[in-house]
Design a binder for these strands. Sequence first.
DNA 1: TTGCTTACCGAACAGTGTTTAGTATGCAAG
DNA 2: CTTGCATACTAAACACTGTTCGGTAAGCAA
Lengths: 207, 207
Amino acid sequence: MALPLTDTQVRDCRDRIRAVAEAQFARRGLAATSLRSIAAELGWAPASLYRYFRNKDELLAATRAAALNRFSDRIEAAYAQPGDLWERSRALGDAYVDFAFEQPAAYQLIFALEQADGDKTPALRAAEERSHRTLTGYIEDMVAAGLLEGDPELLGHVYWSAIHGLIVLQMAGKLKPSLPFDTIRHEITRLLTRGALNRLGRAGHID
Amino acid sequence: MALPLTDTQVRDCRDRIRAVAEAQFARRGLAATSLRSIAAELGWAPASLYRYFRNKDELLAATRAAALNRFSDRIEAAYAQPGDLWERSRALGDAYVDFAFEQPAAYQLIFALEQADGDKTPALRAAEERSHRTLTGYIEDMVAAGLLEGDPELLGHVYWSAIHGLIVLQMAGKLKPSLPFDTIRHEITRLLTRGALNRLGRAGHID
DNA sequence: TTGCTTACCGAACAGTGTTTAGTATGCAAG
DNA sequence: CTTGCATACTAAACACTGTTCGGTAAGCAA
């Protein structure tokens, strides 16, 4: 073990480390996974990992990238299947949801979701419920007034998820620069006042 | 300083600590903020914080709860203003967006968003761009086929934000239990095939 | 003055990511 | 076969983290 590793050997080694890391992320959670625990599972010394990754963040980024590429593989394969656009749409949606629920740890890793739930204080829980009640109550008012149709709970989730997503993307500078700064507010206002989502929320199978 | 503090003094102390913590979260980021740095800014010893918070997680939860309550205050105040439902809708939407962009650190704290961006490997960035291209390309196909109308970029963001939000909520067990397990997939399929969002994405002011 | 409760602190402990000096391995050269 | 050498890997340390514990000093009651 003193001659230089080939490129493929290095890549295999990186993949092995990455796999152990992702397994521990899924099993113990991200915060409880240390370089020492990963090295221990490999039967290595902690410092040895630094031959393959510059630091812990780079290892984390590598596992994220691998999970994200698995996700893209599934989506693209589903969308590439034969059929008309409706069928391919359905296959793509199914692939998206299937991946999320078959590999929840990978999905959480991709989107950097914390699975911590035990560190919620009663005060925090109360604040969350209050916020949820406020936003959901608004949707209920809209439904009661006949301005939106469907199940208020589900409708509210779609609603606020979309708005939240727009804000996050705007903050991250991911929206295309040609959009003026206020466009997001206009879009949100239209969401809120036009009932564009009013076909959603009615539970029922598609035909 | 040896006689017991009154309840209000204790609360003031907790608030002072919390304020310093939130300021450091906003300034240096969440990961770079330690109990030692917070104590140092207060001129205290690190151990002293444990008289007011059981541990770091509880301090974090307190700051989260405080920020979330400030958020709810703004939303509720806007929605409680006089006017018809349209006007109150608009006020609520404005309040939501204004808070998010006036206090981005608080918004990120509330929704546990990591502001880390420098730890992105080229490989991870490539994987993200690939995934983004795949999902956006699908929307573009829909628009090209005349099944959706509007700006594909913005439309895609709303689209995937909503779906992502539904999955996260389903994973967290936040969707109401009466909804059968497959309802989320049906809703997503309807999103994908019904063009329910087809009124969105056309840039332009509301009248 | 004595005693006691109490806010606060200094110092330590275990654990983390990371660096550095060093060991031992196995091929290549003499 | 011996020597040299590049190299995969390690042991030990460093600086830092959250957290705990014994101790100190301050102010009130007796």
